[in-house]
Design a protein around this nucleic acid. Sequence first.
DNA 1: TGCTTGACTTACG
DNA 2: CCGTAAGCCAAGC
Length: 110
Amino acid sequence: MDEANEPGDLPERVRRTVRRVPPGTVVTYGDIAELVDTGPRQVGRIMATDAADTPWWRVVNASGRLPAGLLDEARKHWLDEQTISDPAASRVDLSAKRATWLLDPPSGGD
DNA sequence: TGCTTGACTTACG
DNA sequence: CCGTAAGCCAAGC
């Protein structure tokens, strides 16, 4: 069974899934939502209310962006983790940095 | 119990 | 690329 499908509160499953996103890559709210079987709004709500010990900057919206207030903080992490190369960039290139492989995990759990 | 809100997404112009 | 509209689902009031 996938970790994301393990029992527990929704916030817990979301945080666990977000934590498995490696540095230098990102996923979208919708991606996380699919993995924990909920809606993207819920993922956003959880990140906003319970993002403790969670690399929230690795979770962006479908445009590879984050709200204005978070951009400043997120960009520092993106630069540090080489998610972006341009210090002036305001968005992540999903075509290159989205961890699609994480969205389609091998059933190897078994 | 019911309406409003939101770190979202997709569709349309 | 930007604004608007509708769909979505759980929390808060």
